[in-house]
Design a binder for these strands. Structure first.
Lengths: 380, 380
DNA sequence: GCGTCGACTGCAAACCTTTGCAGTGAAATA
DNA sequence: TATTTCACTGCAAAGGTTTGCAGTCGACGC
């Protein structure tokens, strides 16, 4: 039933090699022949069998995309962009979810290796050395992780964390908490480092809480601890945790941004839709996906691994393109951050206005629990 | 560099066919030989080449997952569940995004056909007849679409829409709007049908607005129209639209649920996190993903298409398993729906309580813009 | 008129695996 | 002892495609 190159050859009265060339090296075949072959192929509904092609060329025209958690809203835009970019370059993409489990990551790379021309490792949780080792088996591009000798796409969360901390300090917050993310996350380390520096040079005190699961639940569970820690500003590992935290603070009667300012990271679509709208460090996820795919395919373009004439030479250990791309992040200020304890002036002003029409006028403060705010201050 | 069955054979002193059997039919090889071969394979890091295997067996152990829009939060849980289920059955999955474009859908099925054992079509936008035609090329399972003769996984949005309408009517709403989804969506047709019936038998008036893009923007754009239409209750095609609508209504000064009750569909994670929390029809997306994969693989288990000994007989036109699974939906009532104009009693009661501590006690109504409610009533 | 070149096409090997068939030797049966 | 059975293994073809090499044929230059 499946129509092969052979059927097309028979139908158009040429040898199979001519049909093959019609598709993979058109300039080598007579224009007349070419149109005839193409017509027959079209007629018969012929599509080249990529598995067979892969067998001989050594290139599958597939790539793998290994994701820590598809359900984490950070990733879908990345997946979408990567898939789109790949398809434009005539590649298909395997997507696999590791559930944040490093051993699954490793297993998946092995399992996919023979079936793809390269793998995108997104926010991997395994060790650098393991990644390096795996990269000898199949070309790898790493997103959100810095591995020496491997092409990486990084988002400058360091810069973002710094901007966030400076923003909080600028608002008058002097005691700030950093909600750490999962163990093994490069982003996490980077944020801690940068936030520490920024806090120190801004004269603020930084408390690090974590590591924590990078989820809404993770943030929610920290609400009590955050309240007791005496901070007035929080930078969360990501938006999900920030949202969870706000949720938790809300049930504890702590108003955001009145009593606590919260900054997230990622700018997932969701963060525009919560109340209050989240102040957050926007990471260029789609761009990261596109860039990573480009780097993978470019790297892939050079060594025709396993091709016929090439012989030895291209042993897999050889150093490949090793570019590292750092993508800009942006602090987007919305409604979850407000003046800190220092700037009593602003606070008083805010507290004075009741929940009137001005709630509707501007972004304002939707929870409007004025009484609670005051009470909480007394406590502090 | 890539280690093949041949290397393992040489290392363990047996013929390649024995190595092959060690992996694909272990009971046919002497236990002693088997362990020796396995040891060598392990040593050398051998992994069977699935492409080569596919070439001869006709089964790739891959499936395709074609998604209207990965960035739509409805899909990631489905993708995640499907991928997980597939992997447990030793299948890998291609994910592709069509951007809601029917022609891309078709192209993708063609492109993937030779590389997969089956394709999951999730909420397809193309015509039934085209789907049917494509199913002759590769086994198909359809999610959120009813196609005669094809295995389908459906979510009972009809039942869900009915429950939602009844819920609204029960709250005293008699004029209700349905925000339609995209053209070509089975879910959309089903909802319209069921909502129409439910409204009629409940004595309510139903206005259908649409079709609309199933996004936040789509909902937001309808706010003005909804306000002017004079309805007090809205059932949206999905949560995203519902959230967009609430957003839009908010900027128009229309409070939810005080002046307008809004029900969504899907129960995406997000809907628990917005304010007000969304009343919505929960669809079992993860279960749908799992079920669809199971149906695909089961269907796939029967005909060893293209296998060697089989000869003709299993022409692809032959009717396959044609089960249709209908998955239950559940109305989950949260905070975006409230008493309608009829039940003035409840409203008054609600309006009487200020935004005090009881806001924190229960789910209550977080926006608490009591004044607005009254004003709005006057308007009406 | 001969040689050369170039454009085009055919031939056949190779990629890695699976599998029907046949062969081996030993054990079980008659 | 002769025969059958059985467990195991090897042989070789097949699957669809690419590609180096070689062949054909007409055109062109001298």
């Amino acid at each position: 039933m499946p129509v092969t190159i052979r059927d097309v050859a028979r139908a158009s009265g040429v040898h199979i090699s001519t049909v093959s060339r019609t598709f993979s090296a058109p300039h080598l075949v007579n224009p007349e022949t070419r149109v005839r072959v193409l017509a027959c192929a079209e007629d018969l509904g012929y599509r080249p069998n990529r598995a067979a092609r892969a067998l001989i060329t050594g290139r599958t025209h597939n790539i793998g995309l290994i994701i820590a958690d598809i359900a984490n809203p950070f990733f879908p835009p990345l997946i979408k962009a990567a898939e789109s970019q790949a398809r434009h370059r005539d590649y298909h993409v395997f997507v696999a979810d590791t559930n944040e489990d490093p051993s699954v990551e490793e297993e998946l790379v092995h399992a996919l290796a023979k079936q793809v021309d390269g793998v995108l490792l997104c926010s991997p949780r395994m060790s650098n050395s393991l990644i390096e080792q795996l990269s000898r088996e199949v070309p790898l591009v790493v997103v959100n992780r810095q591995v020496a000798g491997l092409p990486c796409v990084l988002m400058d969360v360091g810069q973002g964390a710094r901007a966030a901390i400076e923003h909080l300090i600028g608002l008058g917050h002097t005691r700030i908490a950093l909600l750490g993310g999962p163990r093994g996350s490069w982003t996490n380390r980077e944020m801690r480092r940068a936030a520490g520096v920024a806090a120190r040079s801004g004269g603020a005190e930084l408390t690090v809480l974590g590591p924590n699961p990078p989820t809404e639940t993770g943030g929610l569970a920290l609400a009590e601890q955050v309240r007791r820690s005496g901070v007035s500003g929080v930078l969360a590992y990501n938006d999900l945790m920030a949202i969870g935290l706000i949720e938790g603070l809300d049930t504890l009667g702590v108003g955001v941004p009145q009593e606590m300012s919260v900054v997230g990271v990622d700018d997932i679509a969701l963060s525009r839709l919560t109340r209050p709208k989240l102040t957050t460090v926007a990471t260029p996820t789609a761009a990261a996906g596109r860039t990573a795919v480009d780097m993978l395919l470019q790297q892939d373009a050079d060594p025709p691994r396993g091709a016929r004439g090439v012989g030895v030479a291209t042993a897999a250990g050889v150093r490949r393109t090793t570019a590292q791309v750092m993508l800009q992040t942006d602090l987007v200020i919305r409604d979850s951050t407000g003046p800190g304890p220092r700037s009593g002036r602003h606070r008083a002003g805010a507290a004075a206005q009741g929940p009137g029409p001005q709630r509707l006028a501007g972004p304002g403060d939707p929870t409007t629990a004025t009484g609670d705010v005051v009470a909480s201050y007394a406590k502090e």
